[in-house]
Amino acid sequence: MQQKRALGAIIAACILAIVFWQQTRFKTITPDSVFTTLRGEQIVLHDLRGQPVLVTFWATDCRACIEEIPDLIALHEQFANNGLRIIAVTMPYDIPSRVKQLSEMRNLPYAVALDIEGAHVRAFGDVSLTPSSFLIDRERNIVSRVIGRFNLADWRARIAAM
C-alpha cells in the first residue's frame, strides 16, 4: 500500500514538473507566425496587432480539446465583433482529413489551421500538451497560457478588459 502511494506521489510530482517546465518555456512576445487555415486563408499574426487573439493547440483525439470547443465557440460568438480572432492549430501528428471532418461536423466558426511541419508548435515554445492555449493582447504580448482547459469566465473577463 505504501509503495502505491509513493509511486502515485512520484507520478504526480513528475506531472507537475512537466507542466511547470512547459509554462516556463513559452515566449511572452508573439512569434511572427503565418497560419494557413483549412479554407486556404493566410493569417499573419503580425497583421493582427490591435486585435486580441487566442491561439489554441489541439488534436482530434484529445478529449479535453473536444470538450473545450463549446467554450471557444462561445468566446467567438461574444467577442468576434470586437476583433477577437481565434486560431485553432492542430498538432503535427493529427490527420488532416480527421481535422477537416471534425471541423465541418462541429461547424467551427473560427479559423482552424494545420501544423503539419510543427513550425507553430516550435514557435510557441515547443508545445507538447493539448489543449494549450495562448491569449494574446492587442500589442502582441502573450498575456496568458493555459495547459489543459481554460476557465471560460476568466478568459471572458480578460478579453473584455482588452
Rank of each mutant, 00 (worst) to 15 (best):
V55F: 09
I73Q: 07
F79Y: 11
A153V: 13
T28E: 06
T37K: 07
A123L: 12
Y93R: 05
F124C: 06
A6K: 15
K100V: 09
S133H: 01
D126R: 04
T90S: 15
A153G: 10
I73W: 04
G8I: 07
R149T: 08
E139V: 10
R149Q: 13
A113C: 12
Q101I: 05
M91G: 08
M105C: 05
L54V: 00
A160Q: 14
L84Q: 07
S144I: 12
F20N: 09
P31C: 09
P52K: 03
S103I: 10
P52N: 05
R156P: 10
R5C: 03
A123E: 15
R156I: 13
V53A: 08
W58L: 00
V146Y: 08
A64P: 03
A59R: 09
R25W: 02
C14W: 03
D47L: 12
D137A: 08
T36N: 15
G125F: 10
P92Y: 12
A6M: 10
N82C: 01
R158N: 07
W58F: 08
I10Q: 15
C14L: 15
H76P: 09
Q51M: 09
I73G: 00
F26V: 15
S128T: 15
T37G: 04
G83Y: 07
A161H: 10
R63C: 01
